[in-house]
């Protein structure tokens, strides 16, 4: 199995290389560039000078060569929007809110999703079950930015319980609540559905019936025999969900004005900031690759029947 994972780790290099090629080609095939007429007061000569400074006047393959040379030395390139800052600087300044948002949202999704799933299965066909299924349905069908708008209008503008914009440093801990709920409700709904189904499946297993026949208390049956086994499929979901939350938060970051990588990514795309687009795409690709590797690893840990060769 160790050999399998070593091979998987080594595969990361060509995968990321392919990501750089595809991203670089796609990015340069899109119209427009970082320095265009009509955007600022600059003259044509000035824009040409700037393009020359960043090698943007050279063939794309040459530009790719410059980029890869820098990348191999750990240099992600200059930020074309905030000239003077490097992309490394920008990522260093913005990674924290993104990681925090991802971690908090994962915790929210797991706690709420697992909690509701357990309650729904335990109280099947009661109001609790209906509520859980309702939450799962709404959460799964509503885009996070729509939910975000509704939450802001209700809890920030109407009742003023939470700030509508900002993050911990500028708006305090309460700023975490609305973005986390907006971003986490879809995965929470998904986890709740899976947990409920898994719980119902386990509840009908022979060993649960045996435990009941032995006269064990219901609480012990639920937590020791049902929940533990029902959560195995849920646990394997957490990896991709966490990766999705870390990499899929740019809409929420933009909307809630959270100073994270997601917002930098949106700004970079809109501004054709090539090095920043490359860096964020690579970073996201790296997170996804690692998360997938982790999931495969977890499968083997959780289910001893799975063996990799």
């Amino acid at each position: 199995m160790t050999g399998y994972f070593v091979r998987r780790v080594l595969w990361i290099v060509p995968i990321l290389f392919l990501v750089t090629v595809i991203t670089f080609a796609l990015m340069h095939s899109v119209k427009g560039g970082p320095f265009q007429a009509g955007e600022s007061k600059s003259s044509d000569a000035a824009r040409q000078a700037l393009a020359a400074k960043y090698h943007l006047d050279e063939p794309v393959w040459k530009q790719y060569g410059y980029y890869m040379r820098g990348l191999l030395q750990g240099d992600l390139g200059p930020d074309l929007q905030q000239r003077g800052n490097s992309v490394n600087d920008i990522l260093k300044q913005t990674y924290k809110p993104t990681v925090e948002l991802g971690v908090f949202t994962t915790i929210y999704a797991v706690v709420v999703g697992v909690g509701l799933g357990i309650l729904a299965a335990s109280k099947r066909n009661t109001i609790v079950d209906y509520f859980s299924v309702g939450f799962a349905t709404i959460g799964a069908s509503m885009p996070n930015f729509v939910l975000g708008i509704m939450l802001v209008l209700l809890f920030a503008v109407k009742f003023r319980f939470f700030p509508p914009t900002g993050w911990i440093e500028s708006a305090g801990w309460r700023a975490v609540v609305l973005p986390v709920i907006s971003l986490g409700s879809l995965p929470a709904a998904y986890i709740a559905r899976i947990t409920r189904a898994s719980m119902l499946d386990v509840m009908n297993q022979d060993y649960v019936r045996t435990a009941r026949a032995k006269g064990l208390r219901e609480r012990m049956i639920v937590f020791r025999h049902i929940v533990r086994n029902a959560l195995i499929p849920v646990l394997t979901l957490i990896g991709p969900i966490a990766a999705g939350l870390l990499t899929g938060s740019f809409v929420i970051e933009y909307f809630f004005a959270i100073p994270g990588i997601g917002r930098a990514y949106v700004d970079a795309i809109l501004g054709r900031d090539y090095p920043m687009i490359m860096a964020t795409t690579l970073l996201y690709a790296f997170v996804v690759v690692i998360a997938n590797l982790l999931v495969d690893f977890l499968y083997a840990v959780v289910d001893p029947r799975i063996r990799y060769s």
Binding site: L91, V99, L246, L283, V287, A291, L294, L298, V301
Partner: peptide
Amino acid sequence: FRNRWSLLLVAPLAAILVVAAACGG
């Protein structure tokens, strides 16, 4: 079983640290 749970707790943390390290660059 307990060891597997420990691993499950450690693994996501490790992933976050990897991300942080990548960013730190």
